[in-house]
Design a protein around this nucleic acid. Structure first.
Lengths: 343, 343
DNA sequence: TTGTACGCGTTATCAA
DNA sequence: TTGATAACGCGTACAA
């Protein structure tokens, strides 16, 4: 034995331990632990002493030890379909802002819009015994679904609303957003309405479905005017699809894009080719990205509360993790149609 | 005692432990541990048995226990100044792609371009005993610097090149990028060259410095043509500053923007106000964001290897964490001037 | 090459 | 309200 085995204060890392804090405060380690965690059963005088000692040593808990002892980590896993989309970044930021101050460590997983990748990420991250899960949408493999369910880890689903209303979710109705888009364009007197969507995740599809339903009700639906591609959404792709659609269907007089970057591309190509927006064709985007209101012409779009969703979902999860049940599991954050110059 | 104290196999979490794997494989726990970690001193026959057992139980290590026992986590902390900038997203993606397959957990911290926030994040994340650090740039508080240094955690600095060449870094020379920008614009015969920068982080400043130096050498430098603001870079801001500059200095015939989104805003306002680009004023961006080549006119820009930097930095860190020293600590990934229509 | 004994820093359990 | 004791699951140091 190199060091005396009874020397509880021998440190290997340079960091102070709970033991040292306890000694300095003149209490037992467990009392120090309780004091620091704000567990109720500690006398306020002791709490203060412990906190002072901790501050003095600039003590920080060892998350590994804590996780091991409590069989619970302080990490929350967040799975989003993409990072290249500003969309989810704003949501992530908000999540961080809520969770970090509460001492949670946020683990981000990018599923790249793939169910398989999501399943893998989930399997891996579950090893960390996360305290909570923040997932995007409801479209996942059966096995992923089971993993989440059987783990009993508190989970909140973001972006969409659960039709079954059994899951905790914070989002808005994607289909009704699509309907709103159609209604707006129709109210402008447009007759030949198209939908262009990329990155065919469930929400893009749902939006298209709402759009289609509204068109059908107005007897304006033409399946030929639906341009869908699994390719990732981008400015370049938007321009390309826009030109392609107009070439094959020159009579189109309104287009709803599944994401603003597609619409930006369309607006730019319209400029380049002298296609008048909105005179010849109205353009409506989705998500209202920061650049949209500066496009030429300024892009009309459906603004979505990405940041608010992140914040709310994180708070939702916080109460869940605290062991409290939630009265209203489904939180509809709505969306807002911003009419500008392009439609 | 609810459970017999000698029962090493009683589990509290539903998860299999190393003990169980070892029992199933008929070896001691430590042998199982070594086998799973690929430590050389285990007979191949045993390794196979252990791996089979692990697979059968679908065993996954408990990261907390591992971290506690080894006083080392498997997490790598990455600190970037912003997430709303597509820039760093691409870098982060690349980092993930390299580190995750190696079993590292990536902890992302957003400093929001603030030295104080970076210091705080660092202090917090250090509690996780990260195995490695990926930091952006060299501009940080003295205390943050000390924390990194005294921790002895392997660190790689991204985006810029260390002038002292003492630190491991992967990036490119910001000043020479600024010089290249100036040289290009000058070669186009421009005489009244301006620099517009936002989000005055060190790299933006360095770029401006390079630009200025080249202008001075060409006797073309006019301090009045430098528009700098600490406000965060955005399309809207770019348009605003562009108009402002042209109003106060109508003779400006070329502008170098510190970031592409600023340039996008400028191009859009030029369109709106009938200002001819590049005839009246040439516009050059920085970073070559995906949308740039689709702008009207197509934006000339200096393309930066964000993704490659992330990948390389992560690999760099991997060798460092493996205990190997690196022959050439400073890795210059360069940049590329893309001349398109706007300049 | 394999195994034994122990400790990592914290929290749960139970007794005082 | 506080404290003693025993885990939590794994890796290190050493011995065999």
């Amino acid at each position: 034995m190199m060091t005396s085995k009874n020397d509880k204060n021998t440190r290997t890392t340079g960091r102070p331990t709970l033991n040292e804090v306890a000694r300095l405060a003149g209490v037992s380690p467990i009392t120090a632990s309780r004091a620091l965690r704000g567990v109720s059963t500690v006398a306020t005088a002791l709490v203060e002493k412990v906190q002072k000692a901790a501050a003095e040593l600039s003590y920080v808990v060892n998350p590994a030890a804590r996780a091991l002892a409590s069989a619970q980590s302080h990490s929350v896993v967040v799975l989003v379909p993409s990072l290249s989309n500003l969309l989810f970044i704003e949501t992530l930021e908000a999540i961080h802002q809520v969770l970090r101050p509460k001492g949670f460590e946020v683990l981000i997983g990018n599923t790249h819009y793939s169910r398989e990748e999501e399943e893998n990420l989930l399997r891996n991250y579950m090893a960390y015994q996360p305290r909570g899960l923040l997932l995007t949408g409801f479209d996942r493999t059966e096995s992923a679904r089971r993993m989440v369910e059987s783990s009993n880890v508190p989970s909140v689903y973001m972006m969409d609303l659960d039709p079954g209303a059994g899951l905790n979710c914070v989002g808005f109705s994607q289909t009704s957003a699509g309907e709103t888009a159609a209604a707006h364009l129709i109210s402008r007197g447009r007759k030949r309405l198209a939908y262009i969507g990329a990155q065919l995740d469930q929400r893009t599809l749902l939006r298209g479905e709402g759009f289609r339903r509204a068109l059908q009700r107005a007897q304006l639906y033409d399946p030929a005017l639906e341009l869908l591609t699994p390719r990732p959404s981008s400015v370049g792709l938007g321009g390309e699809l826009f030109l392609q659609l107009l070439a094959s269907h020159p009579d189109v007089d309104a287009i709803f894009f599944g994401n603003d970057d597609l619409a930006h591309g369309a607006l730019l190509e319209a400029l380049r080719h002298g296609i008048k927006v909105p005179e010849q064709v109205a353009v409506l985007g989705f998500n209202d990205l920061p650049a949209s209101s500066f496009m030429v012409p300024r892009l009309s779009s459906i603004s979505t509360p990405r940041e608010a969703i992140g914040r709310r979902a994180a708070e939702h999860l916080l109460t869940l993790m605290a062991g409290n049940k939630i009265a209203k599991p489904v939180v509809d954050m709505g969306f807002e149609l911003k009419v500008r110059e392009s439609s």
